[in-house]
Design a protein around this nucleic acid. Structure first.
Length: 828
DNA sequence: AGCTTTGGCGACGAGT
DNA sequence: ACTCGTCGCCAA
């Protein structure tokens, strides 16, 4: 047990104010135990303790020696941290101003300016909630696990493996391998989902008002607990639905809530879907409303999310919302972040649709108990299952991401990719005893971007895209550079320290197309880390993809690699350094253009290229080999054949093509026919034509499919003309990029439609989707308000034409050759 | 409250 | 009739 003796002396090393809660978190250090403690003002949450790594200890002891740092006397008892056996209740700060407000790093900077060489010094201590330092992997492990009898990881066979991999990938330090290889424990956890009466389909009840009763609570754990807590209400029948859970009935809501709090006590992890913004705040305010006192409610609401006392709260909504994860770890399988859609996409399990219909038709308040329980249970099941499916893939992914980013679980699942990378780099700074620069100083020292972007309003120039010639081309090889940008970062030794360094001798080491030079004397940590991760992925984990655990590791590394370059171009990133990001793209441009030239020199015809990929028309094996050899020798980049296409349809538009692989699979890129907003009737026709392309193998067969293609188009053309369709088929589906009220410069059509919906009492917000149709007279209508007769036939014909022209261009078919027949038909 | 980047297409709004 | 900007979606 961690004990903090009474009347001992500790050192206050930082104050972190929460502006909204008007409370301070004091971070202090007890030298005898070599431990960091943090205390939140009047909130009764023991902010768990962190043991310190040796380098942190050293750092802190330096700070401690400084005379301007006040000693803090810890005198009496604190309820706040009593259950940690720490008996302190009052911290006397001699002169609060000496410590000041704001973030710890600013404090220390103010107090000890010379330590930071002026302004560049960061002293935020990397303690994290609920963590215990683990020397095997040089990072924290969830602390609560120890208390709650969850078996810890046993480090038996990892060491040998680590050694082997480290040698194989030729690393001098095994730290990264260690982080990726250490096993992930099976976390004991419980899913929590509440149902509130009076919720409407279009509006979620306001948690702060908490005006409706909680009528049902679902608790499902991965150690077999399946409970539905139901509130007894007058006139409600038990019903006949079968529910795979124990139903417990409560005469009062207070009993129900108290039981819920008791139940979750035994679990170190509580899983919710949107618990940060709904379930937990609602529970909190509802409990207050029913007379409970703060101290008895194990929920703390913070700016960054809802916390649960002595537990780690995982809000899956926040986790799945992360754009990088959405795209790279889950390869865009779900678009909207809703339990329904994610469940469907990852588990093949949506909400109970039968019950949703009831929801729409009537209201939850007349459901029978079993109906309600079944609905609730399904949501709870999905929530838990999202963390258990595929051998706990999500928990493993979270753990690996934590280890790479050096973030705590609660922070990780709630923060964007830029924070992960920042944290990773901050850790690396601390580990190496480096100072962490301030963003302002960094810009001052390294300057802004100098290249001019192609797109107006962008900060610097990006990638090149080759103009494709329209037409069908057979036997096409697509080669691309493996992890181009991470490779560039590594090969050029790029980082904020190395770009535009101080040395005169380095100034001749220029990045192509830029005036920037790169240091040749010292290694940049960004290039090094990204390079290490890249090598680890390419040379090791990519081959092990099929193993469930290593597949996770591979995905996790990929997420970091993909974002690694971009963050340096993000103004809000603490290590924002435009010369770095524009050097990466400049070198990227140089790489692809010189490779294209080399290919031409070798006699290969180039059809298309985008950023890091080149389409080669029917190259010989020898030509290919020469090219890849040249690339690795001269550029130091791995050029590999990514795909072979039986044939490709190029439309003369950049980022728009269709490739048919040898086994008949079709890659559609950028074409309108596959876009999310395209009405189903057109998308459907597009998908039908894909089948024909899939079957064609020879130029003759492609020639032959033209007729079938024309028929499909004509068919849909006529269906539209005859109004032989369902309204749903005509709907455009668009997402509101902002709140409907926030559009000022122009009012796009989908926003107009959203505003019309408001008259029906349906209020859409940012991120919501709207379905609308185009009507006569340039009008639009949300699908709820439209009738079949409203549809503007001409508009949809234009849309059909525009969609298929992208393909017809490559086939050299005139639009009129298809609908010309129809015009004739009109006479009959 | 939500945050990696730039390049490109198509549709439309809003002004000349 | 024309241009230019805005918006959403997509490629990399």
């Amino acid at each position: 047990m961690n004990t903090f003796p009474e009347n001992t002396t500790a050192y206050l090393i930082g104050v972190d104010y929460s502006g909204t809660k008007k409370c301070a978190r004091l971070v202090f250090y007890e030298p005898k135990l070599a431990k960091l403690y943090a205390w939140y003002g009047d909130n009764h949450f023991p902010y768990c303790l962190t043991n310190l790594s040796p380098f942190e200890l050293e750092k802190i002891s330096e700070i401690m020696k400084h005379p301007s740092l006040k000693k803090i006397e810890l005198t009496t008892k604190f309820d706040a941290i009593k259950n940690e056996d720490i008996t302190v209740t009052k911290i006397i700060v001699e002169d609060p101003k000496a410590i000041g407000g704001g973030k710890p790093r600013e404090n220390v900077r103010d107090i000890i300016p010379e330590m930071g060489g002026g302004k560049v010094w960061e002293a935020r201590i990397p303690y994290s909630s609920c963590y215990i330092y683990d020397k095997n992997i040089e990072m924290g492990m969830p602390y609560n696990i120890v208390d709650k009898k969850l078996s810890r990881v046993i480090y038996y066979d990892a060491e040998d493996r680590i050694k082997q991999i480290t040698e194989k990938v030729q690393m001098t330090n095994d730290r990264w391998v260690r982080l990726c290889e250490y096993p992930v424990p099976e976390f004991l956890r419980i899913a929590l989902d509440i149902e509130v009466l009076g919720a409407e389909r279009t509006r979620v009840p306001d948690p702060i008002k908490a005006e409706y009763p909680i009528v049902s609570v679902c608790l499902i754990s991965n150690d077999g607990k399946r409970k539905i807590l139901l509130l007894l209400r007058e006139g409600i029948e038990i019903g006949t639905d079968e529910v795979n859970a124990n139903l417990d009935f409560f005469p009062t809501e207070l009993d129900l809530i108290k039981t819920l709090f008791e139940e979750i006590k035994n679990y170190p992890f509580v899983i919710t879907f949107n618990g940060d913004n709904f379930d937990l705040p609602y529970l909190y305010y509802r409990a207050i409303k029913l007379g409970m006192v703060k101290e008895d409610i194990p929920i703390m609401l913070t700016k960054h999310g809802a916390k649960i006392r002595d537990a780690i709260h995982i809000d899956l909504y926040r986790f799945f919302f992360n754009r990088s994860l959405r795209n790279y770890a889950f390869s865009g399988k779900y678009k909207a972040v809703a339990l329904d859609e994610i469940g469907e996409a990852l588990l093949g399990k949506g909400k109970l649709h039968a019950h949703q219909d009831i929801w729409l038709a009537t209201e939850m308040r007349i459901w029978t108990y079993t109906q309600l329980a079944k609905y609730n249970c399904q949501d709870g099941d999905i929530t838990l299952e999202l963390t258990t499916y595929n051998e706990n893939l999500v928990m493993k992914l979270i753990m690996v991401l934590m280890r790479i980013s050096m973030l705590s679980m609660e922070d990780l699942i709630r923060s964007p990719i830029s924070r992960w990378i920042l944290s990773m780099l901050q850790y690396e700074h601390r580990r190496r005893n480096y100072l962490i620069p301030n963003p302002d100083d960094l810009i001052l020292a390294k300057g802004k971007a100098v290249t001019e972007a192609v797109i107006k309003g962008k900060k610097y120039k990006g990638a090149v895209v080759v103009e494709p010639p329209a037409g069908i081309y057979f036997n096409v090889d697509v080669v691309d550079f493996a992890s181009l940008y991470p490779s560039v970062l590594k090969n050029l030794n790029l980082g904020y320290q190395s770009i535009r360094c101080e040395h005169e001798e380095c100034k001749s080491n220029l990045v192509p197309e830029t005036p920037h030079w790169i240091c040749q004397k010292q290694k940049a940590m960004e290039g090094e880390i990204i390079g290490l991760l890249k090598d680890l992925r390419v040379f090791h984990y990519k081959k092990l993809k099929k193993d469930p655990y290593y597949g996770v590791v591979e995905q996790a590394i990929k997420v970091f690699l993909n974002a690694a370059y971009g963050v340096f171009g993000d103004e809000d990133f603490d290590l924002y350094c435009p010369p770095v990001s524009e050097s990466v793209t400049a070198m990227g441009r140089h790489s692809i253009t010189s490779t294209i030239e080399k290919a031409k020199e070798l006699g290969i015809e180039i059809l298309y290229g985008d950023t890091d990929s080149i389409f080669l028309k029917n190259p010989t094996k020898e030509q290919l080999e020469n090219l890849t050899k040249w690339s690795s020798q001269i550029l130091g980049l791995d050029l590999e054949v990514d795909k072979h296409y039986r044939y490709v349809c190029l439309s003369a538009r950049k980022k728009n093509y269709m490739g048919i692989t040898d086994n008949g699979e079709i890659d559609v890129k950028g074409l309108t026919g596959k876009k999310k907003h395209t009405p189903p009737i057109i998308k459907g026709a597009f998908n039908v034509t894909k089948k024909y392309f899939s079957k064609a193998k020879t130029p003759e067969e492609v020639e032959a499919l033209k007729k079938a293609l024309k028929n499909v188009i004509l068919d849909v053309y006529l269906r539209i003309k005859r109004r032989d369709f369902e309204l749903e088929e005509m709907a455009f589906n668009m997402t509101l990029g902002k709140s409907p009220t926030a559009y000022e410069k122009t009012i796009p059509q989908h926003v107009k439609a959203a505003k019309m919906l408001e008259k029906l009492g349906i209020y859409l917000k940012k991120g919501d989707s709207i379905f609308f149709v185009k009507c006569a007279g340039k009008e639009v209508k949300p699908i709820q308000l439209a009738k079949k007769e409203d549809i503007d036939i001409t508009k949809y014909h234009e849309m059909l034409k525009a969609t298929f022209e992208q393909i017809l261009d490559s086939l050299d078919i005139e639009w009129d050759s298809i609908i010309g027949i129809v015009k004739l038909e009109q006479f009959f």
